[in-house]
């Protein structure tokens, strides 16, 4: 529990962090990757280059500062981060690394404006915020079918469209947990010529008895690497995670997908139809021959899916 003076300082300095948020977090990542290269592999370096991660972190830090006296208010907002952390096997020992470098970055960017009192208050606040994350993640790990990455093997590869391949990956020990429709798994990629491991998340199209179907689109470093993998390749995979999941209700379901965004929604549609729910799916694609999971969707139409395919060849990936 933070004392009132600490909370007052943190809340009073929140606007400053908002103004300098991206500068601070951009410097934070640079500093952390230099000081602690062992954590580089946890981060999506494509998003780093595009500035997405510094922006996301700046937003999260600001939100935490504003709500420092009632952190429960940010619990819904941090759910995606908690699940991503679980999927990447972020552990309690990683939090001090982030804290030290974040405080250092605040000090570096704000200069003399970051007085010892302000840095001290932020150090205390970070400790409280980190404890919230660590506590919630501890429970998530306790509930997981396995912790961290374990070996899977590519059992089947299907050319789905010119851009998408479907992979059936099976756990080497035969043990998997059912992915709630909408959840993803993380794939760990050892890419030749890269000095770090890379991780990417792929929605589970379907859980099988001993594995998962995923359907990556060939874009980006890891997905392109994945497309080169063949039957028999061993790939480390983490347990299903993600809070974007199908709620267990009996209400009619409407799904709206853009391109490869169909993957989590396909799992939702198939599951909901199996439960007797009414399901409508609007799927926007650039052309019919680029519609992922086309045959599988047509099969769902045969069991009651109301499918609307919208073709727009002017569509560009954002």
């Amino acid at each position: 529990m933070l004392d009132q003076q600490t909370m007052d300082i943190v809340k009073a300095t929140a606007p400053v962090l908002k103004d300098h948020g991206v500068a601070i977090t951009s410097h934070f990542y640079k500093r952390m990757f230099e000081n602690n290269p062992e954590v580089r592999h946890f981060f999506n370096h494509t998003n780093q280059k595009r500035g997405r991660q510094p922006e996301a972190l700046a937003n999260a830090v600001y939100a935490a500062a504003v709500h420092i006296d009632r952190l429960e208010a940010i619990l819904p907002a941090i759910q995606p981060a908690l699940h991503k952390h679980k999927s990447l096997n972020i552990r309690p020992e990683h939090y001090p690394i982030v804290g030290e470098n974040l405080l250092g970055a605040i000090q570096d960017v704000l200069g003399e404006a970051a007085t010892p009192d302000i840095i001290d208050a932020w150090a205390k606040a970070y400790g409280v915020i980190a404890d919230v994350f660590i506590s919630l993640e501890k429970q998530m790990y306790a509930d997981a079918p396995w912790i961290g990455f374990k070996p899977f093997t590519v059992a089947e590869v299907i050319e789905d469209t010119p851009e998408v391949k479907r992979f059936h990956i099976k756990a080497n020990d035969g043990v998997v947990g059912t992915a709630i429709p909408g959840q993803y798994i993380s794939v760990q990629a050892h890419i030749a010529g890269e000095d770090i491991l890379h991780h990417r998340q792929y929605s589970v199209v379907e859980t099988t008895e001993d594995g998962y179907w995923i359907a990556p689109k060939a874009e980006g470093l890891v997905s392109n690497w994945l497309h080169e993998q063949t039957v028999g390749t061993e790939i480390p995979v983490s347990a299903p995670a993600g809070e974007f999941v199908l709620e267990d209700t009996d209400r009619p379901l409407t799904l709206v997908a853009g391109g490869i965004g169909i993957t989590p929604l396909f799992n939702m549609a198939k599951t909901a139809l199996g439960q007797g729910r009414s399901v409508t799916l609007l799927h926007a694609v650039r052309s019919t021959n680029l519609r992922p999971l086309s045959e599988e969707l047509d099969e769902l139409v045969n069991v009651g899916l109301h499918l609307i395919t919208h073709v727009d060849d002017t569509y560009q990936v954002a």
Binding site: G182, S203, F244, L246, E247, T249, R251, P252, L253, T254, L255, V256, A257, G258, G259, I260, G261, I262, T263, P264, L265, M268, T280, A284, Y315, V317, A318
Partner: peptide, 14 residues
Amino acid sequence: EGHDVYTCGPTAMM
């Protein structure tokens, strides 16, 4: 109306 609605795709479209 009365439906659960889920959407997934590229940012601009969604």
